[in-house]
Every structure is written in structure tokens, then in C-alpha cells.
Computed example of a mutant assay.
Amino acid sequence: MPFLVVGTWTFSREAVATTAHCLQQNLSCTDAVERGINQIEVDEAYGPCVVGVGGFRNSDGYLELDAAMMEGRGLRTQFGAVTALQGVPRAVSVARAVMEKCSHNMLTGSGATKFAKEQGFAVEDNLLTAKSNQTKQSIPGHDTLGILAVDGQNHVCSGVSTSGSGNKHPGRVGDSALPGNGLYADGEAGAACCSGDGDQILMYCPSFRVVLLMKEGKQPQAACEEVINDIRRKCDGQIFEVAIIAVNMKSEYGAASTLDTWTDPLTGQQFAGFPYVVYTDVMSEPEIKLSKTNRKDS
């Protein structure tokens, strides 16, 4: 069965592989994306990637997770998100529950945790305990795990999860879980998601803009590059870290970023540009692709 899975950064490889395996077992793209992201969320080793239970804590020492899912099935679009979620490691699963079982589309803080409990999610006390796992200095890195999938039924799903920037102010929300910013999906066009400096990204709605360009007929690669170029132009030289991946309903993909280099926080390997992971039905395993910085100013 044909499928396409794309993930942000090299550390998404396991999530991409799990998502693809689920699609090969005829699960929906929504089920597949959820399970793929869960693989990373519950593994403390991925904390340096700013994802999941091992992620950096806020300035008060608490772990606050942001996650979202958005799916497109023809004309129907669904979205759900949680922000500043505490105590529940599988944040993207709570976001999906909001999407499917809540009258609202986004819940935050204690309200998100309360909803998770009501839906049967276990709250882990060790994740509710304040601790200092870093100095009070600013911690570099703004990575978000983002997964896009198109399944054999021509449905598309976008999912994201992050622990947010280290030492953030309690309650801080970046771009990741905001529709049109960290992610977007449209069953007539495709999907996109972003990673980078969320406090800057959320002012540009890049995921929505990429999907809109694809809806107008642009290829995913061209759409990503156009949005990055426009952000670069508007920043007037004060460029920030932003990377975008996108897929369309023809199972074509693309990516673009403002990065000259990026270093994998798990392996120390340096890449000249933005590395992302792709897995299609004609591949035997996930492959790392590299998007070089595009400096066109128009």
C-alpha cells in the first residue's frame, strides 16, 4: 500500500519508522502518527532534542509539554492540542483525545491534565515534581518533533510534540501546538509542520501558508522555499531558526529552512543545512535528506 512519512530532524528516525510500520499494517495515518510520536515522547534519552519526558524543565523546574494533531480527510479537517501539560508523557495522545472527544480544540495547563485524567490517562507523579536539571542560563535549541503522513486512503495527518525551550517562563507556549504555525493539514492539499524558535515562528503562520501554496498548485519544495524566503525578507537580516517540512496528496514532499548548520544533540554529528527523515513505500528503511539553506530574497 502506498504511503509517505516525513519527520523533522535526524532524531525523528525512530518515529518515522514506527509510523511507516503502522501504515504497512493498514492503520490510519492518524493512528500511525500518534504511535510514532509516542515512541519518542516516552523515551528519556530524547530529552536533549527538546521532546518528551527527558525534556528541559521550565524556570520553576516543572516539565510542561505541548503537542497537537491535525488530520485532513477530504473536506473534513480535525484539530486538537494541549499546551503546558504536566504529568502525562504521551502528550500527543492527549491532543488526539481533545481532537476527538472534547468540545474544545485546545486545552492548557491544569485543565489539560484534568481532561487527561478524565480520559483515563495515567498521571505520573515523578513528572509533577519540580527539579532543577539545568542552570538558570538560556539553553540553546528549539527543536520540535514533527511527523507528517499520507496513507493509502489518501488521508493526511500532521502531529507535533515538544517540551519547549529550557528555562521558559511557566505557561509559555510556542508555535508547535498552534494550528497554522507548528502544524497544519488539509485533505485537499496536504500538510506541513515547523520546528525552530517558536516565539518567532508563531508570528508568521508558516505551516498554513505552505499548505495554502500547495492548494494553489505549488509543489511542496517550492512552497516551503517561498515561505522561508518571505520570512527571511521580513526579518531584515535578523533571521531566526525555522525549518519546514511538507507533503501533498500526491505523496510528494519538500523542506526548507534558515539553518546553515545543525548539530544532532544525540550523536554530535553536524549537518550543513536542515536534516529531515523520509520513508516511502518504495524504500526499505527511513532515509535522511538534507535541505540546504535557501538565501533567495524574493
Rank of each mutant, 00 (worst) to 15 (best):
T162M: 06
G120W: 09
E41P: 12
I245L: 03
L107N: 09
R232K: 14
A20D: 14
V156M: 11
I231V: 15
M70D: 02
A185H: 13
V42P: 02
Q219Y: 02
D297Y: 02
R232W: 10
S251D: 12
V123F: 10
L63I: 10
N126W: 03
S138P: 00
C205L: 05
H142Y: 14
E241I: 11
N105V: 09
D230V: 01
G182I: 05
G7D: 11
G198Y: 01
N294A: 03
Q86D: 00
Q119C: 09
G196S: 03
G109W: 03
K131W: 12
F115M: 04
Q78W: 00
I245Q: 02
F121D: 02
L183D: 04
E188V: 00
S110E: 05
A130L: 12
C22K: 15
S163N: 13
Q269I: 13
V247H: 07
G109A: 09
N167T: 01
N167S: 06
G47D: 13
W9R: 11
A192L: 01
T8G: 14
L290A: 03
C22E: 15
T261R: 07
N248T: 08
A272W: 00
E285G: 02
G47Q: 12
N126Y: 04
A81Y: 00
G109Q: 06
Q221D: 14
G141Y: 00
K136Q: 11
S165W: 07
G80V: 14
Y279I: 05
Q134A: 14
A177S: 04
G237K: 04
D230F: 05
N248Q: 08
C194P: 07
E216K: 09
A185D: 14
N105K: 05
I228S: 08
L65N: 05
S93Q: 15
D236T: 03
S132R: 15
V16F: 10
T19A: 08
A84M: 07
G171N: 07
A32G: 13
Q153D: 15
G164S: 11
D60M: 15
G196A: 01
E252C: 07
A223M: 06
S132A: 12
V211K: 07
L27V: 00
A112I: 08
V6P: 04
Y62L: 15
E285I: 03
T263G: 10
K250Q: 15
Q200W: 04
V173A: 03
A95L: 02
T263P: 12
D260Y: 00
K289T: 03
S163I: 10
V92S: 08
D186Y: 06
V42I: 04
P286D: 00
I245K: 01
Q219K: 08
A67I: 03
Q24R: 13
C22N: 15
E14L: 10
S110D: 03
G180Y: 07
N26V: 03
I40A: 13
R57Y: 10
T162H: 03
T30F: 06
G237C: 06
S257E: 03
E287D: 12
A222T: 08
I239G: 06
L85W: 01
Y184A: 15
V277D: 11
G171Y: 07
R295S: 12
V242L: 03
K234H: 14
A67T: 04
Q221R: 13
R13D: 05
F56E: 12
R209P: 01
